[in-house]
Design a protein around this nucleic acid. Structure first.
Ligand code: ZN
Ligand code: ZN
Ligand code: ZN
Ligand code: ZN
Lengths: 132, 132
DNA sequence: ATCAATTGCGTTATGCTATAACGTGTGCGA
DNA sequence: TCGCACACGTTATAGCATAACGCAATTGAT
């Protein structure tokens, strides 16, 4: 998907996520944007919905948070799965792609005649810096 | 982990999940157990915490629901990842394990010196019966 | 130019998910 | 008997997400 021009609200949300060191919840984003006129959760969720649709933001299901895509210019997202390693100490997220994992999972799903549409692969633990 | 005797509340929650055709939310479980004296969400969540700890129930992060383990007697859970295919039409869940996916992911995490603790692999889409 | 459809936006209210904090009772070993 | 661990019950609160309404700007066909 090619990303169209972002609206004002979408840009504000995207900028907040881009400047953040790690994933943010919708309500945290809301708080950071109150000075810019945001008043209600829906303003954030509507912007996030579009950013997710454009593929420039990912949702982390296991922590109810959102993070900017780390590889926005690769075309992996159009045909491959995305995986995340999430540090429970510092909150840092590493996004990665692995075609072998993709194909293995897809083969299994195909064998079950299961038609995949969305995927979630999230590993929680401790990053190199925090594992010490 | 060997599963100790379940308490009354744990048994009630486990039975509800076992009889269910698919995953249930904590509040749905609560409603199904009001006739048995359940009054508050914590009664459900506390039982679920233990059942998750014992490995007889899994949490599906992407739909905020819980499901009984489909392979309670295999030892895969102690060393391997668990994956789920979730049908968005009928709600049915297929639980599966794949050592190749496990190892591939674990190798990648190891290369990043990331210490994994919990994993979530969930594919949403449509099952063979519903894809038609 | 005008009308209809689409899209984004703002607001209020509501619903769903999960946990904090407090107190009670029971069993069990020191 | 005392202390501790654990399960349980209750009330209150926190955190996450959407429904439903109305308005304004844009677009595109007639
Ligand atoms: Zn990405
Ligand atoms: Zn870390
Ligand atoms: Zn299982
Ligand atoms: Zn189905």
């Amino acid at each position: 998907m090619t990303t169209p021009m972002l609206t004002k609200n979408q840009s504000l949300v995207f900028d907040v996520l881009t400047k953040a060191e790690g994933p943010l919840s919708a309500y945290t984003i809301l708080d950071k944007l109150r000075d810019h006129g945001f008043r209600a959760p829906l303003q954030v969720y509507r912007a996030l919905d579009k950013l997710l649709e454009y593929g420039v933001v990912h949702r982390l299901e296991s922590i109810n948070s959102f993070v900017v895509c780390a590889h926005p210019n690769e075309d992996c997202h159009s045909h491959g799965l995305v995986a995340f390693a999430i540090c429970e100490s510092c909150g840092q997220v590493i996004e990665f792609h692995d075609h072998e994992v993709d194909h293995r999972l897809m083969d299994w799903l195909k064998s079950q005649k299961f038609k995949a549409e969305k995927s979630t692969i999230e590993i929680r633990g401790h990053c190199a810096g925090c594992a010490a």
